[in-house]
């Protein structure tokens, strides 16, 4: 039992934010964050397209979009809490953050539209988010 508790503590702690001491470390974190947000964005776009084509109910799509938005916001908040170790990292942080914000704005727009019941408008917003999704995937690919 004691072992189990100790393990739980270790696992819990290891899940927390670690310090990033080098630029490489920070880049890896940027890449992982971009990957997580890209995953949320892709999920949302698939769901939005499905709903727009009459394949999903408004309730379902609003749940899945809400979750995607929450996940992306949480990932960005965690990324913003990292301390950039250098001036180069500062620049990376600003660039990545900019893309993350665009993605999250898009997710918010999808969620609001869905909850207003304007399901038929979702595919258009989803299409507009294509370029942001590509940028996120490029960041994720570059820093991994």
């Amino acid at each position: 039992m004691r072992v189990l508790l100790a393990v739980l503590v270790v696992v819990g702690v290891s899940g927390c934010v670690g310090p990033s001491r080098t630029d490489g470390d920070f880049e890896l974190k940027a890449g992982n964050t971009a990957k997580a947000v890209a995953s949320a964005l892709s999920t949302a776009r698939l769901a939005a397209d499905a709903a727009g084509h009459g394949k999903a109910t408004a309730n379902y799509v609003s749940v899945i979009l809400g979750e995607a938005e929450d996940d992306a916001s949480a990932a960005q908040a965690t990324f913003d809490s990292y301390q950039p170790p250098s001036a180069a990292a500062d620049k990376l942080r600003v660039d990545v953050d900019d893309t993350l914000s665009k993605a999250i704005d898009g997710l918010t727009a999808l969620r609001i539209t869905a909850r207003r019941g304007q399901i038929d408008r979702l595919p258009r917003i989803s299409a507009q988010l294509g370029p942001v999704a590509t940028t996120l995937e490029q960041i994720a690919e570059k820093y991994r």
Binding site: K35, A36, A38, S39, S42, T43, L46, A47, A50, Y60, V63, I64, E67, D71, E137, A140
Partner: peptide
């Protein structure tokens, strides 16, 4: 590259 974190995604 989508990771499954929710039951809603299992259905998608």
């Amino acid at each position: 590259g989508i990771a499954v974190d929710h039951l809603s995604q299992v259905a998608l």
